[in-house]
Design a protein around this nucleic acid. Sequence first.
DNA 1: TCGATCATGATTAGGAAG
DNA 2: CTTCCTAATCATGATCGA
Length: 644
Amino acid sequence: MRPLLAGAFAASSVSLSSVCVPFAKKGLVNHLSKDPCISQAREYIVMDGNAAGEGDDNVDWNTEDELEVENYPASSSSSLTPPSGDAASGSAEASSSAGTSHSKLFYQFVGMGFSEKLVAKAIDEIGEGQPDAILEHLLTYKVLENSPQEQDIDESAVVKEEVVDSDHFSSDYEGSFLDDLSDEDSYSGSEEVINPSSEDKKLLSLTAMGYPVEGAYIAIERCGPDASVDELIDFICAAQMSKEADALLGPEEKPRLLNDFRKQKKRKHSNCDAWSKKRRGEKKLLHGDEEQIRLPNPMIGFGVPTESSTIVHRTLPEAAIGPPYFYYENVALAPKGVWDTISRFLYDVEPEFVDSKYFCATARKRGYVHNLPTNNRFPLLPLPPRTIHEALPLTRKWWPSWDTRTKLNCLQTCIGSAKLTERIRKALEDNDGESEPPLRIQKYVLDECRKWNLVWVGRNKLAPLEPDEVEMLLGFPKNHTRGGGISRTDRYKSLGNSFQVDTVAYHLSVLKDLFPAGVNLLSLFSGIGGAEVALHRLGIPLKNVVSVEISEVNRNIVRSWWEQTNQKGNLIHIADVQQLNGDRLEQLMNSFGGFDLIVGGSPCNNLAGSNRHSRDGLEGKESSLFYDYFRILDLVKCIMSKGH
DNA sequence: TCGATCATGATTAGGAAG
DNA sequence: CTTCCTAATCATGATCGA
């Protein structure tokens, strides 16, 4: 039951045909649209759903799930905390790959969704030096492969669903989801098998010509299944999918569409300071990547309460306008091109980059893509402490004058070691008696302080923050992550992966007037419930909350918070976003009338700079779950529009 | 087996200097 | 313009002891 866009849909020709099939079956009239045609496609999806009745009604992106399963050996239970020596999921393949040292290229392809065995074979046959050839080989293999193995659903992968009814302070399991899964299975079985057809070949052609798979995928998705290869190439150029695409084309070869695209982009962002402030030089313009998203400086997004700035007005692309409202978050300092891709998928909405240092005492540079109004925002009260001294008054006594920090750096999932603070203490004591340590020592100490967010807790004594201090800095109630069998290490990890509540609440505050009776919330990658806490603190009632979170300790934290804050609504927990399909969504939405807001911050660990080992970008093992955010958001939009 | 502890750079961007 | 420096960064894997 592997949902479609998961992981490396872009590289999977099987996924591709799954996407296009519903469109093709309804004979989507193709045209080379200048506008993203997702909304048009949606119309067809809706028709598909309405005309259904006879069991063909799920628009489903999951048509050929069993084909997908095969590509994901043992990785389908992907977790935010990859098991270190997980014997339970003990696939020989997985464990062998953990032991041997594969190349970066290997993991890139595996991250795209190809099986490890296949990738290893391809690299072995072709050699590391020719990634394009390897990709082609992999794709060819998939296209030719026509006898997918039937695989049973792994019991352990079945979503366990927990419902908390706060009126009765009880929780129980809803048994219906197993039925859903079996229904789904029979669906897939009755669905006619689609031959890997023209779409796959087009994808193959494009990739063979050197175009990036992602670009090819998006082009086919947006231009429709009947588009010719030439048209697709036009689209890829116009959208400037990547530098590789540009590098292969001389300026004179670029199609006229490019100009239209530029005009469109220009018009769209002409009223945005951050966008137009820094223009690339002429030479860069020729290279065609002038539209690469750049981070604003200062990083205040469309405005922060503490900084006076001109009001930024924005006009959303048609396809982005709700219902539902959506709010997506991830790290601002992602590898190049990541935010371009994210923005492109999320209906071309320009990301709002905000550093939480304008809200509290700690920096947190994040990008937010949302379709919320931006006027009449208001901050949470009381305003949080905005300097280190205010937030941690006890450190003031020991804070040396030469440590000029007033804000902490980003709170991460790991803390500095005791060995480090001990080394620093010794280095400082060597010069004790002097009024100030030598500049060289100061520099060393300050560098380490900034790197590990150390604070002064005694004479020459530095220490990392305590978990409750992190809670407070991020805007969570005290002891939010404490108790219930949660280890200290897990608290740091959960907190480090969370929202800064004041920042998010400021953005969500506009919903208070729009939904005085409360909201139905779909919270993907909920974590410790940053969105829920933010809405609650804003005084926006939570009517029905569907919270999807893979980590059990995090689910426990949210459930505990839900009960302790006497919530009147219903909390439904789902474990895995990849198990959330259209049927289940529709069922949920029918029971309470759709979602008002979809919030989610997808995994950042393959994007974050702190990651030495697997900073693989958006196609990384966990970070590729972004595509599930998009998949689910698009499904909800589709279902919502069907209702009207 | 779990939790605590520790060591482990690279990729960005921006600015100053040449 | 390039080159060099500063600076920040929702982390992973190995090890050890209980």
